[in-house]
Lab assay of single mutants.
Amino acid sequence: MEVRTIKVFTTVDNINLHTQVVDMSMTYGQQFGPTYLDGADVTKIKPHNSHEGKTFYVLPNDDTLRVEAFEYYHTTDPSFLGRYMSALNHTKKWKYPQVNGLTSIKWADNNCYLATALLTLQQIELKFNPPALQDAYYRARAGEAANFCALILAYCNKTVGELGDVRETMSYLFQHANLDSCKRVLNVVCKTCGQQQTTLKGVEAVMYMGTLSYEQFKKGVQIPCTCGKQATKYLVQQESPFVMMSAPPAQYELKHGTFTCASEYTGNYQCGHYKHITSKETLYCIDGALLTKSSEYKGPITDVFYKENSYTTTIK
């Protein structure tokens, strides 16, 4: 009895394709271990004539594949690729409408935090270190965002349907971005203890939790000093293409032309909904596939993004 075979390709990165001759009487799992086709788990399936010449994702289970996976995804987590594939199996079914010149995501599976993050990423200057993220990001900007969303979920250790947080998501993504040249110098002034300067680099240099107003941050924000008295913390120097200011959701007025974009969060910790506000020729609110415009805006804002380049204080 002759062994019926077909020729397929296996890959971990969709760049390096490895030619395989597979036995049609055995499952993919018996031949390769966990195997995925377009995100779908085909591990328990036997090869079919229609699979001839198709590319299958496999887990990096030998040295060659491990090197290829690390170079593309910059992670050695053995569960990463499987999590990416199972997320992709959902995100490829989502709709990605162009809204006001940006790629958004039609609401499904509690994905409003991903839509808000995706919209924000198209408006701030950011370059990702893992080629996987950078490639998928370019495709997302062009309207094909399924891979990018699935990668975000995998890097953030999230599953489809789980509630997510924009600030946490951005923080994970910033860790995989090139923020080497970003720098922030802060000064804390206390009447009792004097003053202390701190220099922050990388992710810490672009994120701040405690106030939404970048102007206020430049002037000074009140913080408790270690001595128990009130101290003032203010920005001395900022070198970065953008800054992200966050605070627990509270009524906040966004003035046209003073910011790049913002995240609105309605609801409580267990259950809520994100919308995205962007400042173009007027203010726009993007909620999944829905767009509304207004000249002014007041609502429960939790993150505001500002364009920056270089700032030095005039406070002496």
Rank of each mutant, 00 (worst) to 15 (best):
Y284F: 10
F217S: 03
L200M: 07
M244D: 01
H51A: 07
K233D: 03
E308C: 08
S213N: 09
T120Y: 08
R4L: 08
Y96D: 07
Y265G: 06
F174E: 04
L173A: 05
M170Y: 00
T116R: 00
K218C: 00
L153R: 00
F259Q: 05
T226A: 14
S240C: 01
G164P: 00
Y284R: 05
D23S: 14
I315P: 15
Q30F: 04
N61S: 13
G299K: 05
D23T: 14
E204C: 02
N157Q: 05
E2W: 07
E253L: 08
Y73D: 05
A140G: 06
Q196H: 14
A40S: 13
L17G: 02
K95G: 05
R139D: 09
L283T: 08
C182P: 01
T258N: 07
C156A: 08
L212R: 02
V243P: 01
D109F: 02
A145Y: 03
L121A: 08
Y306A: 02
T43L: 07
E162Y: 00
G53E: 14
Y234T: 09
Q30M: 13
V99F: 14
L283K: 01
C182N: 02
A247F: 04
Y208L: 01
V67Y: 13
K233W: 07
Y269R: 15
T199V: 11
G272L: 00
C156R: 00
K255N: 03
E125M: 04
L88E: 03
E204Y: 11
D287I: 01
K183V: 11
T43A: 13
G299H: 10
D287N: 00
L114M: 09
I124L: 14
A231C: 07
K95P: 03
G228W: 02
D63N: 04
F217A: 10
I286S: 00
D41N: 09
Y28N: 07
Q31R: 10
P241E: 09
Y252F: 09
P130I: 05
N129Q: 09
A69L: 10
V185K: 01
T313M: 15
V58D: 02
T27D: 13
G220V: 03
T199Q: 10
Y57I: 11
K54M: 11
V304R: 05
G29E: 11
A132D: 02
S86D: 13
C227V: 01
C156L: 08
Y155I: 03
V236D: 10
V189F: 07
L118Y: 00
D109W: 04
T103H: 08
F9S: 14
T266V: 09
I301E: 06
T64Q: 11
E253T: 10
E144G: 06
F242G: 05
M245D: 03
F148M: 13
V12C: 10
V160Q: 07
D135F: 08
I105W: 00
V203A: 11
T258W: 00
F148E: 03
T76P: 14
R83V: 03
Q98I: 14
G267D: 15
S104N: 06
D165A: 13
K229G: 15
T302S: 15
M244H: 03
Y113M: 06
I277K: 00
D303C: 06
L290Q: 14
G220L: 00
E125T: 06
E239F: 06
G82D: 15
L119D: 09
Y36N: 02
A205I: 04
R66L: 12
S295N: 00
Q175F: 00
C227K: 02
P34K: 11
N61T: 13
K54N: 15
P34H: 13
L186E: 13
D41Q: 10
M207H: 05
M207T: 11
K316L: 15
N89D: 10
F80L: 07
A140M: 12
V203S: 09
F174K: 06
V203H: 11
E308L: 07
F128T: 02
D135G: 03
C149V: 12
G82T: 13
M170C: 11
C227D: 00
L254S: 02
A205S: 05
E144Y: 09
K92I: 11
F70V: 11
L37T: 09
K219R: 13
D165L: 04
K219Y: 05
C285Q: 12
Y252I: 11
E162Q: 06
D41S: 11
M26R: 12
N111H: 01
L163A: 09
Y234I: 11
P60S: 07
A150P: 05
Q20A: 10
A205C: 01
Y284K: 07
Y73V: 04
K307S: 13
E296Y: 13
V22W: 04
K127M: 07
A142T: 14
Y265I: 04
Q20Y: 10
T64C: 15
M207F: 02
I45K: 14
M24W: 10
V203F: 09
T258M: 06
K275N: 06
N178K: 11
L151P: 04
K92L: 12
T10E: 01
Q31E: 08
T76W: 08
M85V: 06
T226C: 12
Y252L: 07
C112M: 04
R83D: 06
H51V: 05
A140I: 10
E52S: 13
Q31A: 14
Q195S: 15
C182I: 01
L118G: 03
T258Y: 09
L119F: 01
V243W: 02
V160L: 07
H48K: 14
K275G: 05
T292F: 10
T313E: 08
C149G: 06
P249V: 14
K158I: 02
V206R: 00
G161I: 01
Q134F: 06
K44R: 12
E215G: 09
V243R: 03
Y274T: 01
N157S: 06
A40Y: 13
H51G: 03
V160G: 06
F242M: 04
L126V: 14
Y234L: 06
K95T: 14
V221G: 04
F174Y: 02
V243C: 04
A108V: 05
N110R: 01
T226P: 13
K280Y: 10
L114K: 00
Y208A: 03
R4A: 12
Y252P: 01
Y252W: 14
Q216R: 06
Y269G: 15
L291T: 15
S310Y: 13
T313Q: 15
C112H: 03
L186N: 01
S295Y: 05
S25T: 14
F242K: 01
M244T: 02
A177I: 08
A117C: 10
P224N: 14
T266Q: 01
L65I: 06
F305N: 04
K106S: 14
I301F: 01
Q98S: 08
A132C: 07
V160K: 08
A142M: 13
K46Y: 12
L153D: 02
K93I: 07
R83N: 10
P241W: 04
N14Y: 04
A136Q: 10
I301W: 01
L291C: 15
F70P: 06
V221Y: 02
V243L: 05
G272I: 00
Y73K: 05
F242I: 01
Y84C: 07
D41K: 07
Y234H: 03
L121S: 03
F80N: 01
T169A: 05
M26D: 12
G194N: 05
R66K: 14
T312K: 05
L200V: 09
E253D: 12
V12H: 10
K255Y: 00
D13Y: 04
T27C: 10
S86K: 12
P224F: 12
K298M: 11
N100V: 10
A231G: 03
L291S: 14
H176T: 03
A289W: 07
A145G: 10
A231H: 05
N268G: 14
G82E: 15
T198G: 01
Q230M: 15
T27F: 14
H176G: 01
Y252C: 12
V304Q: 00
V67L: 15
T116D: 07
K201N: 12
E125R: 04
N100K: 14
I6N: 01
Y284D: 08
A177Y: 06
S246F: 02
Q216V: 06
R139V: 06
V58R: 07
L291Y: 15
K95W: 13
K275W: 08
G257M: 04
V67C: 15
T260I: 15
W107E: 03
Q122K: 05
T169M: 10
T302P: 04
I301T: 03
L59A: 14
N309Q: 15
A262P: 00
D62K: 05
S295L: 14
Q222K: 14
F305Q: 00
L163V: 10
A117V: 15
R184N: 01
G82N: 14
K255W: 05
L163F: 15
P47A: 12
D62W: 00
H276Q: 00
K219D: 07
Y265W: 06
V221D: 02
V206E: 00
N111A: 05
P34T: 13
T292M: 09
L121N: 02
A117T: 11
G161F: 02
T11M: 07
T159H: 15
V203R: 10
Y36W: 15
V185R: 06
S294F: 15
T55L: 05
L119G: 01
